[in-house]
Structures are given as structure tokens and as C-alpha cells.
Write a protein that binds this DNA or RNA. Structure first.
Lengths: 200, 200
DNA sequence: GTCTATAATTTGATAGAC
DNA sequence: GTCTATCAAATTATAGAC
């Protein structure tokens, strides 16, 4: 009995995901420019030629990963904003969740690295630049709004909400990169110390 | 009259410095793997061939930059430690100086980026890996000591000194990278807000 | 000291067999 | 769908002229 169209699609998607996952590992460690197509193929345990059945180029794989990273981040930001909680509880929830992700979700620091690298490098493909421009500010604005709400509620420190949001995200990015650089044996910071930076 | 040996050495050193400076610009923006020798030569306005009169390879240039970066950082850490001030004043001095460097010293964020990239990437040359291993902990230990002193003096928050030191450095690194990613028009954070994270 | 030209190598992408 | 073989382009590094 031949495979159904549905089965074919699922198999194809799973192969695609496998390649994307391998590419994420490679890109996050070596960067876009230093990652060879052969690195990705080897990590995915497939031949170099087969990879081109699923993606047209290295840049396309990279763009797909960045797109996915922002999609998840924006989804998370929206969910957080919509939570029926006072601002200080939203902040507590966000920090605990993000620290948890850094600790135990292997892909999370990789995505952070990917976005950090893309924002800095000017040698990313044009398509990716556009994605970054369209999305880079969203998480900052989302958190700035929550911090401003918290100030109205009297629970958040009295600095400019935009500045607090910058501090918030560079702390998260910094911790993710710190873990990526130092590996599993890194000094995991007390979540209360992080919360302390933002809440009264 | 022929140039003296001394004059020759100075001319040679200045050319070397010019190449290193161009390489720092290129590496910090594109990363080690994506930076081509021709990029560096073009940035320095010299031919590709001439570059090889001063450095054996791209890796050698990279190693030289990393070596220099750690040298400066360790020097600064030692000077700070030796300052005849109470711990909270040392911390204030360090933060104000580092924020100032991020703002107005163009090379500073570039060095931060360089070290951040080298710590994460596993495709750095072996010589560089050794330099990183030997030096990576020094700034963390120096600041942890100062925070511990400050706790004895009653001016620093009561979290683990090692954890505070991690938070300190990821904040600095994060701000440097944030500026590098967003360019001159970035949101510059209130220094008092940063200080607030560490001092009682 | 400096450049141009080029050799040698690496790498991205394609073609064709199974 | 998958792999091996191969082409074409890019890149490092060297050689030789000025």
C-alpha cells in the first residue's frame, strides 16, 4: 500500500525539522558565516546533497530559524500580557519562566544566541534583516508596558519603563549567553536577586 | 639618510596596529568565521598580500586581539582592586567607568563582542581557547571579592558574591552588545538604576 | 614596503545513479 | 528519498614585479 499524501507530508516535515534543529545547534555555536552546509548535514546525519531537497540555501535555513524564534517570542509576550494578574505577578512569572527555560530547555539559549548574533552582524541576508527590524522592538515594548502598569500599581521601581525593559532583556540575554559560554557547570543566579532589580 | 632601526620598528608597529584595529572592527561585526582576510585588508586600505607581511594568518590576528583584550581587562581589574576606597565606592567607580566606556569609547563594545563570541564559539583556534581558559574567570573573581568586602562593610546586597559578580558582568556585557546591536540611537540606561542592583 | 597575479584549497550548490 | 561525484565560485595564502 502506498503512503498517503498526509504521511508523506509528515515525513517531509519531520525531516525539515531535523535539519532546522541541527542548523540551530550549528549556527548558535559557530555563527552564520562560520557554519558550513556540511556541518549542518553532518549534525543531521544526512548527505550534503539531500539537504538541498529541503532548503534552497544556507541563508534560507537561517531565515527560517530567525522567523521561528521571533514567532515564539512574540507568542510568549502576548500570552504574558494577557495574563489576568497584577503587573508584579506578571514580571515574577516572566522571570521565573525565562530562568527555567535557560536552565532546562537546551534550545532556548541557542535561540537567544542566534538572535543576538543576527542583531549585531551586518552580514546576515537581507530577508533576515527585515524580519529583525519588524520584530526587534516588540519584546521591549511589551515589557515596558508591564513595568509602567506596575509603577501605577506601586510595585515596580521608579525608573523609566523603557530603561527597565532594556535592563530586563539584557539580563535575560546575558544569562542565556553566560550559560552557553560556560556550559552546564555555570553559576546559576538566585531568581530572587533578579526580581529584586525590578520590584520594590 | 637611511631610516634608523628604531624608526623602522615604529613604522612597522604602527602598520601592525592599523591592521589590528581594522580587524577588530571587522571581527566584532561579522564574527571570526564570516570575516574574510580581504575584509580586513580593505578596511585597513592595504592589499591582501601586504597583510601577510605582518601576520601569518587570520587566526593569528584574532589571537592577538583576544590577548590584548584580556590584558587590558586584567589591568583594569587590578587597578580597581588596588584603589584606596571602600568597596561600595569601587563598585560605583567601576560601573560609571564601564558605562562611560560603552558610551564613548568605540572600541570598547567591540572588544566585549569579540570576547563574547570567542567564549561561545567552538571554532576558535586552539591558541585562543587557551587564552580564554586562562583568563575568563579573573574579572569574575575580582568583582566577587569586592562584593564580598562590601557585604562586610554593610553596603552590598546579601546575595552570594559569585552570583552578584555574574549579574554584574552580564549586565555590562549586555549593555555593550545592546549598543552594538542598536547603534548610536539606543536607550542609554540610568547609571543609578544599575548601581541600585548591587548596593543597599 | 607595497601591489598584482595566481596557485591551492575550501565550500556552496547541482547532476545523475540507485 | 537518498547518496556520491562533480562543477563553479569564493577565499586563503604565496610568488614575483616594482
Amino acid at each position: 500500500m502506498p503512503k498517503s499524501a498526509e504521511q508523506n507530508r509528515i515525513a517531509r516535515d519531520s525531516r525539515r525539522d531535523q535539519i532546522l534543529d541541527s542548523a540551530l545547534k550549528a549556527f548558535s555555536v559557530k555563527g552564520l558565516g562560520a557554519t558550513k552546509i556540511s556541518d549542518i548535514a553532518q549534525e543531521a546525519s544526512i548527505s550534503q546533497g539531500l539537504l538541498y531537497r529541503y532548503f534552497k540555501s544556507k541563508d534560507e535555513i537561517f531565515a527560517e530559524l530567525i522567523r521561528g524564534a521571533f514567532e515564539r517570542m512574540n507568542l510568549a509576550a502576548n500570552e504574558l500580557t494577557a495574563l489576568p494578574l497584577p503587573a508584579n505577578e506578571k514580571i515574577r512569572t516572566a522571570i521565573l519562566q525565562l530562568l527555567q527555560d535557560i536552565e532546562s530547555n537546551e534550545d532556548f539559549p541557542r535561540y537567544v544566541l542566534l538572535i543576538a548574533q543576527s542583531g549585531i552582524s551586518d552580514s546576515v541576508p537581507d530577508g533576515v534583516k527585515k524580519i529583525i527590524e519588524e520584530n526587534a522592538e516588540i519584546p521591549y515594548k511589551a515589557m515596558a508596558k508591564i513595568f509602567a502598569d506596575g509603577q501605577c500599581e506601586g510595585t515596580v521601581k521608579d525608573y523609566e519603563p523603557e530603561e527597565i525593559a532594556v535592563l530586563f532583556w539584557i539580563t535575560i540575554k546575558g544569562l542565556a549567553m553566560h550559560k552557553a559560554a560556560l556550559g552546564p557547570g555555570y553559576v546559576s543566579p538566585n531568581p530572587q536577586m533578579i526580581l529584586d532589580n525590578f520590584l520594590k
